[in-house]
């Protein structure tokens, strides 16, 4: 376990060092992340210009969901996607063999291999959104709720990561669909709305099949002090199951992997 953490730390350091070489890009991409955050906010502002509450959520409450969405999008597009896109590239070029030969867990090695540090602007943006939302609500969240939200956030990142790993595992089987990760990125856009916006089949899909509700709605409910303990426990159990399944599928698809060069 300690060894795994050391590997992750060394990887993070190396990939941040690589990214920091391009300072101008850092500034440009950081500014772009801010711009897109603005683009994300505009529709919500316009919708709530016409309504006081939508699907049972008020404007500040919906902002809390959006805050988690912005932060998680930063995680997805700043860490998971760039790293895992490299796996797909490795598979296509046949260089994955070199990664598999290294004396550390391959999943660990591929998961943090490339990072875009300018996406920290997303976290800063999310913090500003939270501050504004709770200022509108009129009181700061209780410490209890912040802690619960932090736990739910860990669960959210874990699920996000598991889905990303699953998508890449598919790439082993069908190399032709190497842009599947982009498809997931665009489906993730749905997570900007709380799950009650959807009804019927879609609500079920986004809660249980592709658990987008778990990623943004539950942490937001936790921060607002509205998450019931049953839901929290259920979500955590679900997360562990999901992560376990993702790990199992990753291992089995590594086993089935026949290198391109042999």
């Amino acid at each position: 376990m300690m060894r795994a953490l050391r590997v992750v730390r060394a990887q993070l350091r190396a990939s941040v060092a690589v990214a920091l070489q391009y300072r101008f890009e850092f500034a440009v991409e950081g500014a772009l992340a801010l711009l897109w955050m603005g683009v994300t906010l505009v529709p919500l502002v316009v919708v709530f210009g016409t309504r006081d509450s939508v699907a049972g959520w008020t404007f500040p409450e919906m902002l809390v969901v959006l805050g988690w969405f912005v932060a998680l999008k930063g995680v997805l597009e700043g860490t998971l996607s760039p790293s895992l896109m490299q796996v797909v590239e490795h598979v296509r070029k046949g260089t994955l063999d070199f990664v598999l030969l290294k004396p550390a867990d391959a999943q660990l090695l591929v998961s943090f291999s490339k990072i875009e540090p300018w996406r920290v602007t997303d976290f800063a943006g999310a913090a500003v959104i939270f501050a504004f939302a709770f200022q509108r609500i009129g009181h700061a969240p209780a410490l209890m709720h912040v802690l619960l939200a932090a736990v739910m956030l860990c669960a959210a990142v874990m699920v996000l990561y598991s889905i990303a790993i699953l998508v890449v595992a598919i790439a082993f089987i069908a190399v032709r669909v190497d842009n599947l990760l982009y498809l997931f990125q665009s489906v993730f856009d749905v997570a900007r709305w709380p799950s009650t916006v959807f009804r019927g089949t879609l609500a079920v899909v986004f809660t249980f099949v592709l658990p987008l509700a778990l990623m943004t709605t539950y942490p937001a409910l936790a921060l607002l002090g509205k998450l019931t303990p049953q839901t929290a426990v259920g979500a955590l159990v679900g997360t562990l199951l999901f992560a376990g399944v993702a790990r199992a599928i990753w291992i089995s698809s590594i086993r089935r992997y026949t290198s391109a060069s042999s």
Partner: peptide
């Protein structure tokens, strides 16, 4: 992956 109009339609 062009799904933004559908996301907006939802809200």
């Amino acid at each position: 992956s062009t799904n933004m109009p559908l996301v907006m339609l939802a809200i």
